[in-house]
Lab assay of single mutants.
Amino acid sequence: VTLFVALYDYEARTEDDLSFHKGEKFQILNSSEGDWWEARSLTTGETGYIPSNYAAPV
């Protein structure tokens, strides 16, 4: 399992994006889409796309 942590807060701009807060942890589901990764929040259980430059490996 690849775990990442949010470096900044992010507010979803589309219904496919995932809103999150700094410090929140994610499981990365798909990182082959370039700058946007499909991720599941370990806090909320929700799935959506996150900007890859807002996350770092745990």
Results as ranks from 00 to 15, higher is better:
33 E>H: 14
34 G>E: 12
50 I>G: 01
40 R>N: 03
21 H>C: 13
31 S>Q: 14
23 G>C: 07
32 S>H: 11
49 Y>V: 07
18 L>N: 01
7 L>K: 06
57 P>N: 05
16 D>R: 15
40 R>K: 12
38 E>I: 15
2 T>V: 13
3 L>K: 04
1 V>F: 15
17 D>M: 14
27 Q>S: 08
47 T>S: 09
24 E>Q: 08
55 A>N: 02
19 S>N: 06
37 W>C: 03
45 G>P: 01
8 Y>K: 07
47 T>G: 03
43 T>I: 09
51 P>W: 07
45 G>N: 08
43 T>G: 06
48 G>Q: 01
28 I>V: 09
44 T>I: 01
44 T>A: 01
32 S>C: 13
28 I>N: 00
13 R>C: 13
37 W>T: 03
21 H>N: 10
44 T>R: 04
27 Q>V: 15
28 I>L: 07
34 G>T: 11
37 W>A: 03
30 N>R: 09
50 I>M: 04
24 E>M: 06
32 S>E: 10
12 A>W: 02
18 L>M: 14
43 T>L: 13
32 S>W: 11
52 S>T: 07
1 V>C: 15
23 G>K: 00
12 A>Q: 06
23 G>T: 01
22 K>N: 03
42 L>T: 06
36 W>Y: 12
53 N>S: 14
46 E>K: 15
57 P>V: 08
43 T>R: 13
3 L>F: 12
9 D>C: 10
35 D>H: 10
24 E>H: 07
30 N>Q: 09
22 K>W: 04
18 L>F: 09
9 D>H: 06
41 S>Q: 05
23 G>V: 00
20 F>P: 00
56 A>C: 09
44 T>H: 03
43 T>F: 09
21 H>Q: 12
3 L>V: 14
12 A>C: 06
13 R>G: 08
30 N>W: 08
16 D>L: 14
23 G>F: 05
51 P>R: 07
4 F>M: 10
50 I>P: 01
41 S>D: 02
25 K>L: 15
53 N>V: 09
41 S>L: 10
54 Y>F: 11
14 T>W: 13
37 W>V: 07
48 G>H: 02
56 A>N: 06
16 D>M: 15
27 Q>W: 15
23 G>H: 04
21 H>V: 14
58 V>S: 07
14 T>G: 15
55 A>C: 15
3 L>E: 08
50 I>F: 04
39 A>S: 03
10 Y>F: 09
17 D>E: 15
29 L>W: 07
35 D>R: 08
1 V>A: 13
47 T>R: 11
7 L>W: 04
8 Y>W: 11
58 V>T: 08
21 H>P: 06
56 A>E: 10
33 E>A: 13
7 L>T: 04
36 W>E: 03
43 T>H: 10
56 A>T: 09
5 V>D: 01
28 I>A: 02
56 A>S: 09
20 F>E: 01
19 S>F: 03
44 T>V: 01
30 N>V: 08
8 Y>C: 14
20 F>N: 01
47 T>W: 10
1 V>N: 13
12 A>M: 03
57 P>Y: 06
11 E>W: 09
53 N>F: 12
34 G>R: 12
38 E>G: 04
52 S>N: 06
39 A>D: 00
31 S>I: 13
36 W>V: 07
20 F>Q: 00
5 V>P: 00
24 E>T: 08
10 Y>C: 04
57 P>I: 08
41 S>E: 02
23 G>E: 03
5 V>C: 08
46 E>W: 08
8 Y>I: 06
13 R>F: 08
34 G>C: 11
39 A>L: 02
44 T>D: 02
48 G>A: 03
26 F>N: 00
1 V>Q: 13
2 T>F: 12
38 E>H: 14
55 A>I: 15
6 A>M: 06
35 D>Q: 10
1 V>L: 13
25 K>D: 01
19 S>C: 05
16 D>A: 14
26 F>S: 00
19 S>D: 03
25 K>G: 05
52 S>I: 11
48 G>R: 02
56 A>R: 09
1 V>K: 12
19 S>I: 02
3 L>Y: 13
35 D>E: 12
49 Y>K: 14
53 N>W: 15
8 Y>H: 08
35 D>G: 12
29 L>P: 05
32 S>G: 12
49 Y>R: 15
41 S>P: 00
49 Y>T: 07
32 S>F: 10
11 E>H: 10
13 R>A: 10
30 N>F: 08
7 L>F: 03
23 G>P: 01
4 F>A: 10
19 S>K: 04
3 L>H: 09
8 Y>E: 07
51 P>Q: 05
16 D>I: 13
57 P>A: 09
29 L>F: 08
50 I>C: 03
37 W>L: 11
14 T>F: 15
58 V>P: 05
47 T>M: 09
37 W>D: 00
29 L>N: 05
3 L>M: 10
32 S>L: 12
6 A>C: 04
34 G>P: 14
29 L>H: 05
20 F>K: 00
46 E>N: 12
23 G>D: 05
37 W>G: 00
8 Y>A: 08
40 R>W: 07
13 R>L: 11
29 L>V: 08
22 K>M: 08
15 E>T: 12
42 L>H: 05
17 D>Y: 14
20 F>C: 03
3 L>G: 03
19 S>A: 06
46 E>A: 13
45 G>C: 09
14 T>R: 15
17 D>H: 15
10 Y>H: 05
3 L>N: 05
48 G>W: 04
53 N>T: 11
8 Y>P: 00
44 T>N: 06
22 K>T: 07
49 Y>I: 08
36 W>P: 04
9 D>S: 08
2 T>P: 11
49 Y>P: 01
50 I>Q: 01
4 F>N: 00
40 R>C: 08
25 K>R: 12
22 K>R: 11
49 Y>G: 03
58 V>Q: 08
27 Q>C: 13
40 R>F: 10
21 H>Y: 12
26 F>V: 02
2 T>M: 13
27 Q>I: 15
7 L>S: 03
55 A>F: 15
22 K>Y: 05
17 D>C: 15
17 D>W: 13
18 L>K: 01
37 W>I: 08
26 F>I: 06
48 G>D: 01
14 T>A: 11
15 E>S: 13
13 R>V: 13
2 T>Q: 13
52 S>D: 02
26 F>R: 00
43 T>W: 11
44 T>F: 02
8 Y>N: 06
6 A>S: 04
37 W>Q: 03
2 T>I: 13
48 G>C: 05
6 A>P: 00
45 G>V: 01
38 E>R: 13
52 S>K: 14
53 N>E: 09
18 L>D: 00
7 L>Q: 05
41 S>H: 07
8 Y>G: 05
32 S>M: 13
56 A>D: 05
25 K>Y: 15
4 F>V: 10
42 L>R: 02
22 K>L: 06
41 S>R: 13
25 K>T: 12
32 S>Q: 11
41 S>V: 07
28 I>D: 00
8 Y>R: 08
31 S>T: 14
24 E>S: 04
40 R>T: 11
36 W>F: 10
18 L>P: 01
53 N>M: 11
20 F>I: 05
40 R>Q: 08
23 G>M: 02
48 G>I: 03
39 A>N: 00
43 T>S: 12
54 Y>E: 01
54 Y>S: 15
41 S>G: 03
17 D>K: 15
29 L>R: 05
44 T>K: 03
44 T>M: 02
30 N>P: 04
30 N>Y: 08
1 V>T: 13
10 Y>I: 02
33 E>I: 11
8 Y>V: 07
50 I>W: 00
21 H>F: 13
17 D>I: 11
9 D>A: 06
2 T>W: 13
5 V>R: 04
42 L>G: 02
40 R>H: 06
27 Q>T: 10
10 Y>E: 00
42 L>Q: 06
24 E>P: 00
21 H>T: 13
40 R>I: 11
12 A>E: 03
6 A>K: 00
44 T>L: 02
57 P>C: 06
18 L>Y: 04
20 F>W: 01
42 L>C: 14
51 P>K: 06
5 V>M: 08
24 E>W: 07
56 A>Q: 10
21 H>L: 12
42 L>I: 10
41 S>M: 08
40 R>D: 00
13 R>Y: 07
15 E>K: 13
33 E>R: 15
9 D>E: 06
7 L>D: 02
55 A>Y: 04
5 V>W: 07
46 E>V: 11
